[in-house]
Amino acid sequence: MTTTGGKRSAKIYDAARTRGIILDAAEEIFAESGYSAARIDAIAKASGYNKSLIYQYYGDKLGLYTEVVKRADQIGEQITGSFISELLKDEQLLQDPEAFKRFMESMTRQTVFFLLEHRSYLRILLWEAAEDWKTWNQITYRPDDATQMHEVALVAQRNGILRQDLDPALFPLLIMNVITTTLQSSSRFEPLLGRLDSRQLREQTTRQIAQFIIHGVMEPSLL
């Protein structure tokens, strides 16, 4: 019994490891080429596994892409999800302008950290934007962070913290686009800005992004 169980555990572990290697390779290829130009042949070569195994695990290219997006989103959720959940559980936090500012600063910092640590996912998001989100809208997995952020915006606006002339539906869109576009464009302005590899510059840039967002979405009288 012990031997059989040991063999079964080894097989499960090997399968999980194999899936991880394939997803790592797929993420890099999708980030480099975008979904449309990415080829399963290239992913198979980069991962060291044959195409038949990839198809066995993920069905097709869209299924593989879905799992890449899902894994990245779940990692991001572990980093930023607690902030959003805390706000939604305790509505009193959304009645305090200072608490809302701290939330925005923390969420911005954690989002920047996640995207800089997972630059390939950032590039995937930008490929999607360039291709009008056609593939993203086909996948069955739907990250719910935008829905949660919309809920935060509705409550904050009802409590007079979010500016009244802002459509709450635009709240998550504006935040994500300010962060992703700033990070992606930083290389273009490197002679002026410097490299975000510097911890000091990364912190300074993160604070500036957070302040820009806060002043854009909060009721001006509370700033």
Rank of each mutant, 00 (worst) to 15 (best):
E151Q: 15
L87C: 10
L122T: 06
P143D: 10
D96W: 03
R17P: 06
S221C: 11
Q157L: 01
L23W: 08
D197L: 11
N50G: 15
E98K: 06
E67T: 00
L126E: 10
D73L: 07
I22V: 15
L154D: 02
D90L: 08
K45W: 06
L154V: 14
K51M: 12
E151T: 08
Q200D: 14
A10R: 14
R207E: 13
F83A: 03
G34Q: 07
S185E: 06
E117A: 10
Q208E: 09
G216L: 14
S186P: 02
Y35K: 04
L170H: 13
A210Q: 05
D14H: 09
G76Q: 11
E91S: 13
I214Q: 01
A46F: 01
D96S: 11
E27K: 14
S185Q: 10
K134C: 05
A72V: 00
L162P: 00
I12L: 10
L222F: 07
L87E: 01
E28C: 03
I139P: 04
T18E: 10
E128F: 01
Q211T: 12
L88Y: 11
F30N: 03
S36D: 15
R17E: 15
G81E: 01
L64R: 04
D167C: 02
V178Q: 06
S198D: 14
I40D: 00
I75N: 08
T66C: 14
Q184F: 13
T3C: 03
L222Y: 06
D24A: 07
Y49P: 04
T182G: 02
D132R: 12
G63I: 10
L174T: 15
E203S: 06
F113R: 15
Y13T: 12
F189I: 09
L126K: 10
D73Q: 12
E28T: 12
S106K: 05
L192K: 08
L115T: 00
R109D: 09
G6I: 03
L166C: 10
S9D: 04
E91I: 13
G34D: 07
G81T: 01
R8Q: 13
V155Y: 10
K134A: 14
P172K: 07
P168K: 01
E117F: 04
K11R: 13
L125Y: 05
L62R: 05
E91A: 13
G5I: 04
I75K: 14
A15H: 11
T180I: 02
F83M: 08
R123H: 12
I29N: 05
R142F: 07
T111Y: 10
F83I: 12
S47V: 02
M149Q: 06
T180E: 11
H215Q: 09
I161F: 02
E67V: 06
E28Q: 09
V217Y: 03
P143S: 02
R109P: 03
L170D: 13
E67D: 09
A130C: 03
F113T: 15
L162Y: 03
A38G: 04
Y121A: 02
S186W: 06
L222W: 05
D144W: 08
T2G: 15
L162G: 00
D60T: 11
E86M: 09
L183A: 09
L125N: 01
A46E: 07
